[in-house]
Amino acid sequence: MTINEQQDAIIEDFSLFSDWMDKYEYIIQLGKDLPMIEDRYKTDDNLIRGCQSRVWLHADYRDGKVFFTADSDAVITKGLVSMVILVLSGHTPKEIVDADVYFIDAIGLRNHLSPTRSNGLLSMLKQIKLYALALQAKSMQS
């Protein structure tokens, strides 16, 4: 699936729920499918700042594509991380850097997340794009 097809699939899933508690249940469930980061990558270097909860994010580069693994000590955060990774993981650095991440607004998440949570989500997106940018620069050199 392309990045946008994946985003559209999430938007469609969310449209099935009218109640925010149900949406949260769904987010928590998604967190359980999060590709887990290996313990050795759970270092301070891989911690994302701007979250009240802790998030570790690790990027692997294989066959020209970036694969993300992550974890968090908070389950809602884990669910949010999981959605972002579902959308962006397994794509080329260029696709990730150029991606227009619209699903967060489309499902109304930004308005419902607490400001700290929302800041955390934005710093994670930023970090993911930075990783991709770094890998893109690296691949252009080699």
């Binding site: 508690m21 949260y24 009240q52 909860s53 908070a74 809602i76 607490s114 949570r117």
Partner: peptide
């Protein structure tokens, strides 16, 4: 349970 999660719910 993380306090942040409980606070949000």
């Amino acid at each position: 349970i993380h306090p942040f999660d409980l606070g949000e719910i």
